[in-house]
Computed example of a mutant assay.
Amino acid sequence: MNNTITSTNFNFPGQKSVYKGKVREVYQLENDILVMVATDRLSAFDVVMPKGIPYKGQILNQIATKMMADTADIVPNWLLATPDPNVAVGYACEPFKVEMVIRGYMSGHAAREYKLGKRILCGVTMPEGMKENDKFPHPIITPATKAEMGDHDEDISREDILKRGIVSEEDYVVLEKYTRDLFQRGTEIAAKRGLILVDTKYEFGKTKDGKIVLIDEIHTPDSSRYFYADGYEERQNRMEPQKQLSKEFVRQWLISEGFQGLEGQKVPVMSDEYITTVSERYIELYENITGEKFVKADISDIQSRIEKNVLAYLKS
């Protein structure tokens, strides 16, 4: 379990600042260049777990960069290069302070709210008579305000975003269009793999010249929920849980251990055996989502490997 990367402290040439999020660490360099390192940290219920998951950062980074390449024709993104399995390099942007969450099915957070009797989520009405994992008549956008590390993201409506001036109406219209376009493309990609893209979130930023671009991760198991398409209808008809690809299995384990990120709750200890199963599940997610065999990177000294690869890229 020692061969994970849970924190970094690089000092790259021209480095100006470092931002450490829940999972990624972002180094801002001169000339508006960002080096984003995907760590092996695991976040659930907006809380970072004490131990890292082997290969998780590599998996998230490689899925995200592949999906950005597969959607670049419909939505511009920040990415320039991937010099290391855990690293993406791109243009510095001013991030919008909202996450654009889009849901095609009534699952996860939406289902939990629905069971509490709520029928409006982020200002959007959810139809009566739905059961968990049913498909919405149309995908719904349910934004969240972005939180700093360890804090909870909060649901917010389109109206409140505009009223509070978090995003201008002109920009928000673009964010909504890009969100729907990406979700449609993600749905098509998933269908080719025998999967259903249930819900996901996108983050956007604005470049120095005012262009809105996709940033951070996209269509990864940390930011998205997938169902297996085969047997979906039968499981719904029998009111059985759906077979899914996401980190929901981690959330359910935490719930079973009495933890949902609420005040006063203690994070349960993950055994090395359980961490190994989580790593194996992430590899399964990668192979199912991308349709490619996962190739494990050398993790004997991840910090040195990353530093060497990034420095070589920056010199080039």
Rank of each mutant, 00 (worst) to 15 (best):
32 D>Y: 07
268 P>S: 03
43 S>G: 00
223 S>M: 01
141 I>S: 06
216 D>P: 06
20 K>W: 00
292 E>A: 15
57 G>S: 00
196 I>Y: 09
221 P>F: 00
160 D>H: 11
22 K>S: 07
15 Q>T: 07
63 I>E: 02
282 Y>M: 10
296 K>F: 07
220 T>H: 04
247 K>A: 09
215 I>R: 03
221 P>L: 07
221 P>A: 08
300 S>L: 05
129 G>R: 08
159 E>M: 08
93 C>E: 01
277 T>V: 06
193 R>L: 09
175 L>W: 03
38 A>C: 12
108 G>A: 11
104 G>Q: 02
26 V>C: 13
268 P>G: 06
305 R>F: 07
98 V>H: 03
166 I>F: 02
90 G>R: 10
162 L>R: 08
171 D>I: 05
214 L>E: 01
151 D>T: 09
33 I>F: 07
306 I>A: 02
208 K>N: 13
250 V>C: 04
110 A>R: 00
148 E>G: 15
34 L>W: 08
199 D>F: 11
109 H>N: 12
213 V>H: 04
210 G>A: 11
14 G>E: 09
121 L>H: 15
181 D>C: 02
222 D>C: 03
45 F>P: 11
83 P>Q: 05
180 R>Q: 10
315 K>S: 15
5 I>W: 06
175 L>V: 10
168 S>H: 04
4 T>P: 06
146 K>A: 02
274 Y>N: 13
312 A>G: 10
129 G>H: 09
104 G>K: 02
140 I>R: 12
92 A>S: 12
242 Q>H: 08
9 N>E: 12
253 W>M: 11
192 K>R: 14
115 K>S: 15
99 E>Y: 00
10 F>A: 10
209 D>S: 14
31 N>I: 07
170 E>Q: 14
174 V>Y: 00
87 V>T: 09
277 T>P: 02
276 T>H: 13
34 L>R: 01
240 E>P: 06
94 E>G: 00
144 A>C: 15
182 L>K: 03
142 T>W: 00
291 G>S: 03
246 S>W: 00
238 R>I: 06
219 H>S: 09
258 G>S: 09
150 G>A: 01
283 I>L: 09
138 H>Q: 14
298 D>V: 05
207 T>S: 08
158 R>V: 11
90 G>Q: 09
137 P>M: 05
80 L>Q: 11
141 I>N: 08
23 V>H: 01
293 K>W: 01
92 A>Q: 12
222 D>Q: 01
234 E>K: 15
75 V>E: 06
82 T>F: 08
173 V>I: 12
281 R>M: 15
33 I>Y: 02
228 Y>F: 15
228 Y>M: 12
308 K>N: 12
301 D>L: 02
279 S>V: 05
230 D>S: 14
213 V>E: 01
235 R>M: 03
65 T>H: 10
293 K>G: 00
167 V>Y: 00
73 D>S: 13
44 A>V: 07
39 T>R: 02
306 I>K: 08
128 E>H: 12
138 H>M: 11
281 R>V: 10
38 A>I: 04
97 K>Q: 15
164 R>W: 14
249 F>T: 05
37 V>T: 06
74 I>M: 08
205 G>M: 05
206 K>Q: 11
80 L>W: 14
9 N>V: 02
133 N>R: 02
206 K>P: 07
146 K>T: 05
80 L>M: 15
310 V>N: 02
82 T>N: 13
27 Y>K: 06
312 A>C: 00
58 Q>C: 11
7 S>A: 13
230 D>C: 03
186 G>R: 00
295 V>L: 12
295 V>N: 13
